[in-house]
C-alpha cells in the first residue's frame, strides 16, 4: 500500500466514522445520553440503502424485497430508517437514566444484529448482500476512490455544520441546560423528555446516511460488519479526541482510523503473525484509551487555554 492509498483510506473511513463520532458527541457530551448501540443506526442505514437499491431477488437469494431504486432514494431511505429506529428505541428507553440507557441501547443493537443474522428474508442472513449498487463516478470521468473519499468528507462537513448551527442556537442552550441541571431546566418550562428524545432522533439521521455511504464504499452489507465493535470504536475515537468539541471528535476518529490502516498496511508472512498484529492493535488501542481517560490531557489543555 502506498502513501496515496493510505491517505485516501484514512480520509474515506476517517470522515465516515467521524459522522458517527459527531452524532455520539451530540448525544453524550451535549445531551448527556450514553448510547451504547450506535452501530444499530449505522446498520439500519446501510441495510435500508441496500434493500432500496438492489435488484429483486433471484437464484439463491433469500431476501424478499429488492426495489432496484436509484441511489439517492436509497440514501434518503437510509436516513429515514435510522430515524425510525431511533424513534422505536428512544421512545421506551429515554426515560431511563445513565447506565440503564447505555445497557438498553446496547441491547437494542444486539437485537437488531441477531435479527439480521437470523431473519434471512431481510438480507440473506449471515451471507449478507453483496454487489450493492452504487453510482459509478467513472461515467463522469472521476476516479472511484477519490470520489467516495470526497463524498465521505462532504457528509462529515455537512454533519459538523448542521450540529454546530443547532448547538449555537437557543435550542442548543436548552439542550445544555437539560444536561447540566434537569430540575432547573424543567423549572423554566423546558420539556426535558421531549428535548432528549429530539436530540436522540436528530443525531441518528447522519449515522444512517453514513451507513448508506459505507454500503456504497464496501459494496457489501452483512451482519459481520455491524457488530458492537463499531460502537466501541466510535466511543474510543470520541474519548481520544477529547469530549465536547467537534474538531476533537473528528481528529480523534482520524487518528484512530489512521493507526488501524497503518497496522493493516504492514505485510505479514503468516496468518499467525497477522493475528498477533491484530491482537496487538486491540491492546494498544485499549491501553491508549485507558491512559487518556485516566489523565484526560485534552480537558487539561482546554482548562489551560481558558485560564490564559
Amino acid at each position: 500500500m502506498n502513501l496515496v492509498q493510505l491517505f485516501l483510506a484514512v480520509v474515506m473511513f476517517g470522515s465516515l466514522f467521524s459522522v458517527l463520532t459527531l452524532s455520539l458527541n451530540l448525544q453524550y457530551a451535549r445531551g448527556g445520553m450514553i448510547n451504547f448501540g450506535t452501530v444499530a443506526y449505522f446498520a439500519a442505514g446501510a441495510y435500508a440503502y441496500a434493500i432500496v437499491t438492489q435488484e429483486p431477488p433471484s437464484g439463491l437469494d433469500q431476501y424478499l424485497v429488492g426495489l432496484h431504486g436509484p441511489w439517492w432514494a436509497g440514501f434518503l431511505a437510509a436516513g429515514v430508517a435510522a430515524m425510525a429506529f431511533a424513534v422505536l428505541t428512544g421512545w421506551p428507553t429515554l426515560r431511563l437514566r445513565g447506565e440503564y440507557l447505555a445497557l438498553t441501547t446496547f441491547a437494542f443493537a444486539e437485537m437488531l444484529h441477531s435479527l439480521l443474522v437470523n431473519e434471512r428474508r431481510i438480507g440473506n442472513g449471515t451471507v449478507g448482500l453483496a454487489n450493492v449498487e452504487r453510482p459509478d463516478p467513472g461515467s463522469l470521468g472521476l476516479p472511484d476512490a477519490w470520489t467516495y473519499a470526497g463524498a465521505a468528507f462532504v457528509l462529515m462537513l455537512a454533519t459538523a455544520l448542521v450540529f454546530r448551527h443547532l448547538l449555537a442556537s437557543p435550542y442548543g442552550r436548552a439542550i445544555d441546560a437539560v444536561r447540566d441541571d434537569e430540575g432547573a431546566a424543567e423549572a423554566i418550562g423546558k420539556d426535558i423528555a421531549r428535548l432528549r428524545f429530539e436530540v436522540f432522533v436528530i443525531s441518528a439521521v447522519p449515522i444512517g446516511f453514513a451507513g448508506a455511504l459505507y454500503a456504497m464504499i464496501t459494496t457489501l452489507v452483512s451482519p459481520d460488519l455491524f457488530t458492537a465493535e463499531v460502537t466501541f470504536f466510535v466511543w474510543i475515537a470520541l474519548v481520544l479526541g477529547g469530549e465536547r468539541t467537534i474538531l476533537g471528535a473528528v481528529l480523534g476518529t482520524m487518528a484512530l482510523v489512521g493507526f488501524q490502516e497503518l497496522v493493516r498496511a504492514i505485510p505479514f508472512e503468516s496468518v499467525r503473525a497477522a493475528e498477533i498484529a491484530a491482537a496487538g492493535e486491540d491492546i494498544v488501542t485499549g491501553v491508549l484509551f485507558i491512559l487518556i481517560l485516566r489523565w484526560q490531557p485534552f480537558e487539561a489543555m482546554m482548562k489551560r487555554r481558558r485560564a490564559a
Binding site: 466511543w235 474510543i236 493475528e275 491482537a279 485507558i290 481517560l293 485516566r294
Partner: peptide, 29 residues
Amino acid sequence: MRRHGPAVLLITSVGVAYVMAGMMHAIIG
C-alpha cells in the same frame, strides 16, 4: 479514576476489555 464518575469508569472498562481480549488472542489464537 473513581473521581471521574461511573460513566467514565464504564467506558474505561471497555478499554480494559479490549486489552484483555487482545492479549488472549495474541497468546492463544
